[in-house]
């Protein structure tokens, strides 16, 4: 049994806006094993970024617990907490917003080292910065070390972000849409570099994206968690989810994605939703949040009971799925659009 490095237990998170309470995350349970490739996917507003922030303790959960290496992070104090903050880092989506425009590459990479007392004197810090830049292929180092963000391309900025996340020698990195803002032609190179860093440095990476094809590529040997309106609706091995999706939302999503292959994409069958309107988080429908749009909706069941993430008995899939009809072993009947 591999040991989980991270575990989320019944995590809820809501935000207040005036008198309204917006439930952004509800009942999130999952664990991440050491060196596992885990990918959280979902559309905007599904709570994937909030989950990422909660993992790094940039945002406390409203209720529930986050365990890092078996210890509840809410109980960590002093040096232990500092060690946790060093061990878990995040790479943000937008390399144009996440780098301070008045700091040079050297500044950005040396501050965390100095803050955490990781460098060994000025020379030691400089040497470590150079090592980090080597790791992310910002070479030749002399060409980049004194540059400001505006002097770098999008891809180079994101390399700085990645190097910055690596300064504290973390064991877990949350990569939130970390390649979405860079050009198509260099996206895959960045992703491959991150996968390579995992092997070389032993960092576990939780990858958050809206792009299922990217998720598939990143986590082919790992797992994917599909999120919808604040809940995990399907969690399982990537290969299984891509080839044999169980949850209706996952099925619809996979059928809707265009492919860069004219013949394949034009012959692909698209499952029609019952409704295209996405419910607001403040007015979530009763029962399963997906039921107003679900083409396999069962009246009296789906609009009544909130489904939990469970393994399906007797199904030809090992994925955990949150769907009452599937849980009860009912056969799904497609409604006409």
């Amino acid at each position: 049994m591999p040991q989980p490095i991270l575990e989320l237990k019944q995590v809820y998170r809501s935000f207040k806006r005036g008198r309204e309470v917006i439930p952004v995350l509800q009942d999130i349970n999952f664990s991440v094993n050491k060196l596992e490739f885990l990918c959280l996917v979902g559309e905007s507003g599904c709570g994937k970024t909030t989950t990422g922030k909660i993992i790094c303790d940039l945002l406390p959960p409203s209720s529930g617990a986050i365990e890092f290496e078996g210890v509840d992070i809410a109980a960590l104090r002093g040096a232990d907490y500092k060690r946790f903050r060093r061990s878990v880092q995040i790479i943000h989506q937008d390399p144009y917003a996440s780098l301070n425009p008045t700091h040079t590459v050297y500044d950005m990479l040396s501050y965390p080292l100095l803050t955490h007392g990781l460098g060994n004197g000025r020379r030691g810090v400089r040497q470590r910065v150079q090592e980090l830049m080597d790791l992310v292929d910002l070479t030749p180092v002399e060409d980049f070390i004194d540059k400001y963000p505006h002097q770098l391309s999008g891809g180079q900025r994101q390399r700085v972000s990645i190097a910055r996340a690596l300064t504290t020698e973390p064991s877990l990195i949350v990569a939130d849409e970390s390649v979405s803002m860079v050009d198509v032609s260099i996206r895959i190179g960045l992703l491959q570099m991150m996968m390579d860093l995992r092997d070389r440095l032993g960092v576990t990476i939780v990858f958050i994206t809206h792009d299922l094809a990217l998720a598939k590529y990143f986590a082919w040997e790992g797992r994917i968690g599909v999120m919808y309106l604040g809940r995990l609706v399907e969690l399982g091995r990537t290969q299984e989810i891509i080839r044999n999706p169980q949850h209706p939302y996952t099925k619809v999503l996979l059928s809707a994605i265009p492919e860069p292959d004219p013949e394949k994409t034009r012959s692909k069958e698209h499952i029609q939703l019952r409704s295209e309107d996405i419910p607001r988080l403040t007015e979530l429908p009763p029962g399963c949040s997906f039921h107003p749009r679900c083409p396999w909706y069962v009246e009296g069941v789906c609009d009544d009971v909130v489904p939990q993430l469970v393994s399906l008995a007797g199904a030809d899939s090992e994925s955990e799925v949150a769907c009452i009809p599937l849980e009860r072993g009912q056969e799904l009947v497609l409604h006409d659009a």
């Binding site: 198509v184 032609s185 094809a213 990217l214 082919w220 996979l254 492919e259 860069p260 292959d261 394949k264």
Partner: peptide, 8 residues
Amino acid sequence: SVPTLEHM
């Protein structure tokens, strides 16, 4: 350079 769902 683009990953797809169909191909490995």
